[in-house]
Structure formats: C-alpha cells, structure tokens
C-alpha cells in the first residue's frame, strides 16, 4: 500500500465520520441528500460481496465493514431516527435513483472484465459510485447556503477521489501489469464531478467567507 492510497482511504473514512458526527451530535441532516447516501449504501453492498469469497488483509476487511456499517447507519438515521428525520428536506432532494442505477447496471452488463455475478456487481458499484454524488451536488446547488460540516463532507470525498488517482498513477509505474481502464475512467469521471464544487470551496476558503454556490 502506498501513501496516496492510505491518505485516500483516510480522507474517505474522515468524510463518513464527519457526516455521522454531524448527524449524531447536532441531530440534523439538513443539507444532506438521502438519495446520495442510499446510493453509497448500494455501492458498498454490491462492491464488497468479495468479503464472503476473498480475504485480502485485516485492514481491507475492517475498512469494508466500516464503510458498510456507516453507510447503512447514515441511511437509517435520516429515514428513521425520530429527531434527525424531521430535518430531512424531502422536497429539495428530488433526484430519482433509477436515473443513475439503471444506466450503471446496463453499462456494467455490457462493459466488464468478466461476465460473472460478482464481477458485474463490482463493475456496477464502480459506475454507480462515480455518479452517486450527483443528488448531493444538486441539493447543494438548490439550497446554496451550505453549513461547514456539509461543505467539509463533500470536500473530503473529493480529496479521497483525487488521492486515489495519484495512487493509480503510482501503482501504474511501480507494479507490473497494473492497467485498469474501468476503474480509472469511472474514477476520473467521479473526480471531475467535484471540480466545480472545489472551485467555489477554495474561493470561499481563500476569501475567508461562508461557502455559497451560485444558483
């Protein structure tokens, strides 16, 4: 494991913890898209099917379990927690899941490495992760005014994606036969989706003002 991969995993973990912390302590999920969180839960559930078949390392297994448990807990909090669910703004969070899930699934059926259930689910999870942030970005655009924790959550997710790209570049030059087009292209698409957000995030940080997205 290289430093970029580890830093990427840690920012990913931090993003989830920031979100859980926000929900747990403030008892509010204002500004958080339930649609995006449900898509992430689906991403992890379909990607980590190999928990049952392959053992890679203790680190790998533990991280997978953490991402599974945390993503489903976040969904549970927003949907069922008696206080948190009241702060969920259903009318603003209108993105339809199947607009993203269906094309990703069809694409995974056509473009994959191997036509097996596990491999197709894994590929589907990569495609879906690439676009799962869209409902969240749409919600941010709509509400415009973003609280610090939500801004940090999206920033950490973007940092995680950027670090994974550096990890792939590093692995490409240090490991033989490390060529993974499906992972790279979906990862690149995912990172590019954050570019616009990053631009406004850094501007607000530079000018020391509250983050606001243009309508």
């Amino acid at each position: 494991m290289n430093i970029f991969r580890l830093a990427g995993d840690m920012t990913h973990l931090a993003s989830v913890l920031v979100l859980l912390l926000k929900i747990h302590t403030i008892k509010s999920c204002a500004g958080i898209s339930l649609k995006t969180q449900e898509l992430y839960a689906l991403v992890f559930a379909t990607r980590y099917l190999d928990l049952f078949t392959d053992y890679i390392s203790l680190y790998n297994t533990l991280m997978k379990l953490i991402f599974l448990v945390s993503s489903f807990s976040i969904v549970w909090y927003i949907r069922h927690h008696k206080i948190v669910r009241r702060s969920y703004d259903k009318d603003q969070d209108t993105f339809r899941h199947y607009f993203l899930v269906l094309p990703c699934f069809l694409l995974a059926l056509v473009i994959n490495e191997k036509f097996t259930v596990k491999e197709i689910m894994w590929t589907f999870s990569l495609y879906l992760e690439a676009v799962a942030i869209l409902p969240q970005l749409v919600l941010l655009q709509r509400t415009r005014n973003i609280d610090n924790l939500t801004g940090q959550y999206v920033f950490l997710l973007g940092a995680y994606r950027s670090l994974y790209i550096l990890n792939w570049i590093y692995r490409y030059f240090t490991e033989p036969h490390y060529v993974h087009w499906i992972t790279w292209i979906s990862g690149l698409v995912q990172t590019l989706l954050y570019a616009d957000f990053f631009y406004y995030y850094f501007q607000s940080w530079k000018n020391n003002v509250k983050l606001e997205l243009p309508a």
Binding site: R5, D9, D54, M63, K64, E113, Y164, H180, I182
Partner: peptide
C-alpha cells in the same frame, strides 16, 4: 493468490 484487477482497493 492472483486477484482480479483493482480488487484490493476499497
């Protein structure tokens, strides 16, 4: 054991 591409990543 040889893993399929990128499967050791999260």
């Amino acid at each position: 054991k040889e893993l399929p591409q990128g499967h050791d990543e999260l």
